[in-house]
Design a protein around this nucleic acid. Structure first.
Lengths: 210, 210
DNA sequence: ATTAAAATCACATCTTAATGTGATTGTACA
DNA sequence: TGTACAATCACATTAAGATGTGATTTTAAT
């Protein structure tokens, strides 16, 4: 197994040193650049022989924030994997970092051994995150429980088929009813939602408005 | 620590039995209901004294799919946490399951010990997922600079109108061209995207596939 | 027992969408 | 200076969708 080249962007000197000392002792990982800011890091890498494959990135930095730096880092190093290493664990920071292109998100409380593990996992094409952060991430997908009772269960079935791209005829077949029944359902759905076209129905469905 | 009550929905008898035997031997986890389908499960829980706090759910089931079953399960058991346990590891299945409200996603290849660990993590309010699945999940956030050149700028304008719920006639009016021109554009769009209905077009548009 | 709501089906009518063939114009590129 | 492509329009046909009126049946609630 090849050594993994690592970059660190972290403005707390204590943490910098602690990480540096730790990775120095790990033959699998070679720390090729440590900077206190994204700006410095971007300048420094121009004169490096070995480029980092993975970057540990803090959010609260001097100069631009780690999150704003992600696109710039990815622009300079398109193949790099970015692991956030930060004290912030709020949904918003996590969400923004991932949307910007980070591939993993760790709390600074994470033990060094786990950080190393995360680096190895990411290097193999995976992603590591703590259970609590993972939960926050999956929660961003979860349905926003509108649960409006505008539509009956049967009507919702019909909507699902429509959204799936089925024609009335196909729906009738799938649900074992006549096409006229499908028509009637759709008439009622349109009345209930105060719309009058399939396009609006699909939009509402995608926007979770039913 | 209290025992965790568990439900299992899985139609493969071998896996059912293997899970059942394993959890029988775990004092921390009590399996209160095993069913082969979501439908059965929903019927069965009505007569249970102890309700499951966590459900292991397969996707490929007899009757309705596990993914379609998630909303129904959450409806009956609003506090339940659902862990997908499935062979499917494609982005789409993962994404749909999480959007439907699953809180964790495991491959069937996961060792029993890890499944138990996942259950305990979820029971504590976290989420467990394997590195490869975690990576797929974070990738759904990442910026997708597809910017596919499948459609010309004019065609994209037409699509925008369609998605907005406009009819051909309205589009023709908005863009100051004849309705036949709109028709031709749409014909070409359908050909380019290899689809043949408005519904599919709207879906692709919402799913960022253009 | 009555009522209300949900789901089913039929028939009719009109509008919109899907698809094919064919043509013209302008622009960009080799 | 062709040629490829985007954008425009016309005509025609078949399929699908939208909408109205009216009716039956089953089930849940009053």
């Amino acid at each position: 197994m090849n050594t993994i080249t690592l970059g660190i962007i972290e403005d707390d000197e204590l943490i910098q040193e602690s990480l540096n000392a730790f990775f120095d002792a790990q033959p699998e990982i070679e720390c090729v650049q440590i900077s206190s800011s994204v700006e410095d890091f971007l300048t420094s890498i121009k004169s490096l022989k070995k480029l980092p494959e993975i970057i540990l990135l803090d959010i609260n930095l001097l100069g631009m924030s780690g999150i704003k730096g992600i696109p710039l880092l990815l622009n300079e190093l398109p193949k790099v994997d970015i692991i956030m290493l930060t004290t912030f664990e709020d949904n918003d920071s996590i969400y923004k970092a991932l949307c910007a292109g980070a591939c993993s998100y760790l709390s600074k409380k994470t033990p060094l051994k786990k950080i190393k593990e995360a680096i190895e996992v990411v290097s193999k094409g995976g992603s590591y995150m703590s259970p609590s952060i993972a939960r926050k991430i999956v929660n961003t997908f979860a349905p926003k429980q509108h649960k409006s009772n505008l539509l009956t269960p049967r009507q919702k079935e019909i909507v699902a088929e429509i959204v799936d791209g089925k024609s009335y005829k196909m729906i009738a077949n799938d649900l074992f009813v006549s096409i006229d029944t499908v028509r009637t359902h759709i008439k009622n759905i349109y009345k209930a939602l105060e719309i009058n076209s399939k396009a609006e129905l699909i939009r509402k469905s995608y926007d979770n408005e039913l």
